Simulated scan of single mutants.
Amino acid sequence: MENILVVENISKKYKNYQALKDVSLTIRKGDIYGLIGRNGAGKTTLLKIITSLSKESSGSVQLFGSNNQKEFIKSLERTGSVIETPVAYDNLSARENLVYYSKLRGVVDKKMIDDTLKLVDLADVGKKKTKHFSLGMKQKLGIAIALLSQPDFLILDEPINGLDPIAIVEFRDLLKKLNKEFNITILISSHILSELYQVANRFGILNDGKIAEEMSKEDFEKLSRNMICIEVEEVEKVTPILEKITQSAYKVISQNEINVYDPDIEVTDFIHHLTEHKITINGIYKTGIDLENHFKALVDGTNQNLPVKGGKMQ
């Protein structure tokens, strides 16, 4: 599958502050890629470097397979972005803003303006000035401006931040439509994990200027299956038993705790096998993880949920 964006070992330093540290990620054609990170993690800095609004200290960015600076600048023409705040003019209406930007970008198809307003559901706002728009309307207008040049790749920085629940649903539906019906690959940053999970098919978790993990939605759904947590006196006596009674992955969490990732086996079966081998069980229960817990564990440096068959003592 074609790579739309390849970021390799990007670092960014401001005097004594290291904003990004050897960040690498890949976005493929058709992705809605969710860049997850707390405020201050480096999301906006990375997006600015990708769109050439800021210069990296080291590393490289490839857009649409660009191999040099000239090709990269040309590839930016296929990219639309809304970073930090929408670029609309407050004293102009939605249509007037699009007319202005169409002239600036050499868009000669006037029908494109009306089609774009209709696409983002701003066709009926009339002469209402942008300064009187709700936050959701301003975000839609920002996307409309980005869509004027019919980009293949759309980059959005915290677009759902501050939106009310209805506006978030509308925005989510718009992104899905752009991706599915117009074949636009999307990179969207946010710290609102639950909403990002609704639209993205791949995720990159950015923490303290570094990519802590990349995963697909399918990977996470496998990870989030039920697991059995076992608390015992000596975990090293349990692992040989697990090798015999289950083909599932497991991970040793500590000297007294082990997680078994088995969707089928029952807790009572484990109790039977362990007691049969005279293993003292201090606790045993079924649980699962969700994206927010996984994210929190990663950024707190306590992530121990990834299944590892035959995991070693940690």
Rank of each mutant, 00 (worst) to 15 (best):
M1Y: 10
M1G: 14
E2P: 10
V7R: 01
E8N: 13
I10E: 07
K13L: 09
D22F: 06
L25Q: 07
R28L: 07
I32E: 00
I32L: 04
Y33C: 08
G34N: 07
R38P: 11
G42N: 02
L47Q: 05
L47Y: 02
I49E: 03
V61Q: 08
I73C: 12
L76Y: 04
T79I: 14
G80D: 01
S81C: 13
I83Y: 05
I83H: 02
T85Q: 15
R95P: 12
R95Y: 15
E96W: 11
N97W: 07
L98R: 09
Y100I: 14
Y100H: 15
K103W: 11
K103G: 12
K103T: 12
G106N: 07
V107A: 08
I113Y: 11
T116F: 10
L117Q: 05
K118V: 07
D121F: 00
V125I: 15
K128F: 09
H132V: 07
F133S: 01
S134M: 07
G136T: 00
K138V: 01
I143A: 02
L147D: 00
Q150V: 07
E158P: 03
I160F: 00
G162R: 02
L163A: 02
P165W: 00
P165Y: 01
A167V: 01
F171I: 00
L174Y: 00
K177I: 00
N179T: 04
N179C: 03
N183C: 10
I186N: 05
I188R: 00
L193N: 01
E195N: 03
R202Y: 05
L206F: 05
G209L: 04
K210F: 11
I211T: 10
A212Q: 01
D219S: 13
E221W: 10
K222H: 09
V232N: 08
V232G: 06
E236A: 13
E236T: 14
E236G: 10
K237C: 08
T239G: 09
L242H: 07
T246Q: 07
Q247I: 15
S248P: 06
V252G: 07
I253W: 02
N256F: 12
V260S: 11
D264F: 15
V267Y: 12
V267P: 06
T268E: 13
F270T: 06
I271E: 03
H272Y: 14
H272R: 14
H277N: 14
H277C: 09
N282T: 03
N282W: 08
I284Q: 03
I284H: 06
K286Y: 11
T287H: 04
L291G: 04
K296P: 00
K296H: 07
A297E: 10
L298A: 04
G301S: 08
Q304E: 13
P307E: 06
V308G: 00
G310T: 09
G310Y: 11
M313R: 14
